[in-house]
Amino acid sequence: MEMLPEIAHRRSIRVYKPEALAGDAINRILEAGRRAPSAKNRQTWRFIVVTDREKKGKLAEASFGQEQVEQAGAVFALCTTNVDYIMPNNQPSHPVDIGIASAFMMLQAEHEGLGSCPITTFQEADVKVLLSVPHKMRVVMLLAVGVPGERGELTPRFPPERVVGYEHW
Rank of each mutant, 00 (worst) to 15 (best):
Glu31Ser: 04
Ala32Gly: 11
Lys58Pro: 09
Ala32Thr: 02
Gly113Lys: 07
Ser38Arg: 03
Ala39Pro: 04
Met3Ser: 08
Lys136Val: 09
Glu19Leu: 13
Met87Lys: 12
Glu54Pro: 02
Gly99Leu: 10
Ala101Cys: 08
His9Glu: 14
Ala62Pro: 08
Arg14Ile: 06
Val133Ala: 06
Thr120Tyr: 14
Ala72Thr: 09
Ala60Trp: 01
Ile119Pro: 02
Ala74Phe: 08
Val83Ile: 15
Asp84Ser: 15
Glu19Lys: 10
Gln66Tyr: 06
Ala144Lys: 04
Pro118Gln: 09
Glu161Asp: 15
Lys56Ala: 02
Ala103Phe: 06
Ile13Glu: 00
Arg28Val: 00
Trp169Asn: 07
Val96Phe: 08
Lys56Arg: 11
Thr120Leu: 12
Ile13Gln: 03
Glu70Met: 08
Val50Asp: 01
Val129Ala: 15
Ala103Asp: 02
Met106Tyr: 02
Arg151Val: 13
Ile13Ala: 01
Pro156His: 07
Val49Phe: 12
Ser102Glu: 10
Arg46Ile: 02
Ala109Met: 11
Thr44Ala: 15
Gly146Val: 13
Ser38Thr: 14
Thr44Arg: 15
Glu161Ile: 08
Trp169Ser: 04
Leu107Met: 15
Met137Asp: 13
Thr51Leu: 03
Ser116Ala: 15
Thr80Lys: 09
Thr80Val: 00
Val139Ala: 10
Lys55Ile: 12
Asn90Ala: 11
Leu30Met: 12
Pro160Cys: 06
Ala62Val: 07
Gln123Glu: 14
Met141Asn: 06
Ile7Tyr: 00
Glu61Phe: 11
Phe158Ser: 15
Arg53Gln: 13
Arg138Phe: 10
Gly23Leu: 03
Ile29Trp: 06
Glu54Trp: 07
Gly99Cys: 02
Arg138Gly: 01
Gly99Gln: 00
Ile86Cys: 09
Gly33Met: 01
Glu54Phe: 00
Leu78Gln: 01
Ile13Leu: 00
Asp84Gly: 15
Gly57Leu: 11
Glu67Leu: 12
Glu70Leu: 13
His9Ile: 01
Met106Lys: 05
Arg46Lys: 15
Glu153Asp: 14
